[in-house]
Design a protein around this nucleic acid. Structure first.
Lengths: 193, 193
DNA sequence: GAAAAATTGAACGTGATGTTCACTCCACCA
DNA sequence: TGGTGGAGTGAACATCACGTTCAATTTTTC
């Protein structure tokens, strides 16, 4: 594994840990453990904890933005769209956004205010995506007339949970099944009889 | 406010904080802040951090067990039952059980192994409750033939999230709306056409 | 097999955190 | 009014956890 790939793995592990505990409470040893290496070794790749954090966030942010952008292009129906959103690639960052900022919503956890603006922006984009899918479904007469705002919020919460389960603690297989099942039921509930 | 009530408030605040960060990463100052008092004052009520943790967990565990017991008596249909489960009283403990043990599932966070057994037990009881509701609905021909295990898991996850949002960061009103809306859709999806 | 690169683990210093305590504040009563 | 006890404060302290460094060791490369 070359230096590039190793850095990527470090950033991803870093994001997982920062997402779990927040910057302040995350220990660089946690990150080393996550990678199966020692603290000392980590310091050959990053300057210090802060540096690791900055780089990791930038790394994840790019991936996540690209994914949202791609998703928006091909809105179809809520379930497919939503599952696609869940399945696709590198959404590590959403864990920060979601677990902390959305669910628990504690701005002190992520200290960089300019970054927080971008988190908020991405969150909003994702929510907008869901809302527009729901609205369109209703307008086209396929969905029942549900409360778009609240349902979008619930769906986004479910999405967040999927991300947490899948990426924060990698329980891939059964989690996938569980959400497919669940979303199938939701879709049935949405569709007009 | 007498000493009894104050102790109760301390335990509840303690649980919130322990649930957020885990025993090790929770600071007693966090708990003091949560209560709007100083660390020093806290020590008039509890012996030390460990003592606070023990007492708080016991306190919450009793409430939660009582609630599950009550719920099991009057199973009706999944939505009503589920919402009741969500609305009712003191379920603080479930945040520990759920956010940490269920979602992130990190046994190291709560160090008392005997306690963990009881957590697991309560978790299982809650899941059983949901599964039995679903199974019954299907057997009686009211529900579509969904995958009971996976759907129960998703519902439980949603429940966990409700608890987190409501109790860990008290966003009562809109959270309530969001889950009622969401669960209504789920119920519609469950019911046979 | 030597040179270079990667990795380790122990050591260090500092800042954070659990705990204590002398002191203040205040309600209550004589 | 002045004394008493309980509630609460915030500064001080001691310990230790954590970020960081580095000499020593292992692994890789040629």
């Amino acid at each position: 594994m070359n230096r590039e790939e190793k850095l990527t793995r470090i950033y991803e592990a870093g994001l997982r840990v920062f997402a779990r505990y927040g910057y302040r409470r995350a220990r660089v040893e946690d990150i080393a453990d996550e990678l199966g290496m020692t603290k000392g070794n980590l310091y050959l790749y990053v300057k210090d904890k802060r540096d690791l954090y900055e780089k990791a966030v930038s790394h994840g942010l790019l991936q996540w933005q690209a994914m949202v952008a791609r998703s928006i292009e091909k809105i179809d129906d809520v379930c497919e769209q939503f599952l696609a959103l869940c399945r696709k690639g590198y959404t590590y960052l959403s864990r920060d956004v979601s677990l902390r900022s959305v669910l628990i919503n504690d701005p002190s956890i992520f200290p960089l205010s300019s970054r927080e603006d971008r988190f908020a922006e991405i969150n909003r984009a994702s929510m907008d995506l869901l809302r527009s899918v729901l609205t369109r479904g209703i307008r086209e007469g396929r969905f029942r007339e549900v409360d778009v705002d609240h349902l979008a919020e619930l769906l986004y919460s479910i999405y967040v949970m999927f991300i947490i389960k899948t990426y924060v603690k990698s329980e891939g297989k059964s989690t996938q099944k569980m959400f497919e099942q669940g979303l199938d039921v939701v879709l049935q509930g949405l569709l007009k009889k």
